[in-house]
C-alpha cells in the first residue's frame, strides 16, 4: 500500500506547480489551467487524509470542490472569450489597459 505521505507530497508538488504557473505563464488559458491544478491538488490532499483517517468527510468535500470547479470553469471560459473578442490576444502581458 502506498503510504499517505507520498500522496501528500504529490499534492504539494502539484499545488506549487499550479501556483508557479499562475505567476509565470503568460497565456490566459494556461494560467486558468494552473488554477485548476491547484484546486485538484487540494482535492488530492483531502482524499489522502480521508483515506488515512478512514473518514468520509474528505471524500464528500472533493465532490463539492469538483462541482465548484466546474462552475468556475464555465464563468472563466466565458470571460476568456470576452477578453479574446475585445482584443484578439490571450497574452496576459497585453491585457493591461488600466495602468497608472
Amino acid at each position: 500500500m502506498v503510504p499517505t505521505s507520498n500522496y501528500l507530497l504529490l499534492a504539494a508538488a502539484l499545488f506549487c506547480m499550479g501556483m508557479l504557473g499562475v505567476l509565470v505563464r503568460r497565456n490566459a488559458l494556461v494560467v486558468f489551467m494552473c488554477v485548476e491544478l491547484m484546486l485538484n491538488a487540494s482535492n488530492l490532499t483531502f482524499l489522502a487524509f480521508a483515506r488515512h483517517r478512514g473518514d468520509m468527510t474528505g471524500h464528500i468535500s472533493a465532490f463539492f470542490v469538483i462541482a465548484v470547479a466546474a462552475a468556475e470553469a464555465a464563468i472563466g471560459l466565458a470571460i476568456v472569450i470576452a477578453v479574446f473578442r475585445s482584443r484578439g490576444t490571450l497574452n496576459v502581458d497585453d491585457i493591461r489597459t488600466m495602468r497608472h
Binding site: 501556483m19 488554477v35 472563466g76 482584443r87 488600466m98
Partner: peptide, 19 residues
C-alpha cells in the same frame, strides 16, 4: 475592453485565492 480585462483579472486572482 476595460470590463473584460477587469473581469479576467478578478477571475484569475479570485480563483487563485480560493484555491
Amino acid at each position: 475592453t476595460r470590463p473584460a480585462e477587469a473581469g479576467f483579472k478578478y477571475f484569475i486572482l479570485g480563483a487563485f485565492s480560493s484555491a
